[in-house]
Amino acid sequence: MTDFSSIFGLALGLVASGDGELYAIIALSLRVTLTAVAIGCLVGLPLGAFLAVVRFPGHGAVTALLNAFMGLPPVVVGLVVYLLLSRAGPLGVLGLLYTPTAMIIAQAVLVTPLIAALARQSLSDLHGEYDELFQSLGLSTRRKMAALIWDGRYSLSTAALAGFGRAIAEVGAVIIVGGNIEHVTRVMTTAIALETSKGDLALALALGIILMTLSLAVNAAVLSLNRTARRLAYA
């Protein structure tokens, strides 16, 4: 097999070649995953905040369920979304199967519980600090949730990043609902799976390196944005 230095070379060469196809795949990966994470945050953060603020019968069970769903197997999510979106399924009329939208839906399902569970954890800690003050101020549940999310935004960005990491790296769900169609639903991970199945392990690994670099870049960007925002807030 090819040695690692030549694979790095291959990865660099791919990026440098300005290969339009590669960039389209990278762009689609980012578009699908970032949208899924945005939806995951839209749903997961309020859900996590709600669980941090409100006690109700069955609270423990819901939390446990959410924690368990952090480990949802992507293939299972892919299958369920496939069954929903398939022409034979309840949402078949929408014709969403084998589109980026289907992939976004699957990934959103995958990351929402993760983001919600992590948000609940960190917002519960914050709520422990704020609880008496909130009570004394007589705040509504909604204002409490909003205040927690706003004040906890830096630690919540970690939850969002965890969601991003899970989504950008998964192949099981997107390959089932996206179909890995060239130019339409092929993303980095499905391209890697394809090259692996073609036995082109070097190319697959080179793509893997590019994917990891991408993921690293997004993480670094968010963290440094975070740090700048924090510094400005503390200035």
Binding site: Y130, E132, L133, D151
Partner: peptide
């Protein structure tokens, strides 16, 4: 009513 706590609880703002 308002209460000033023994340990001030301030928002992270």
């Amino acid at each position: 009513q308002a209460l000033v706590f023994q340990r001030p609880t301030l928002l992270r703002r």
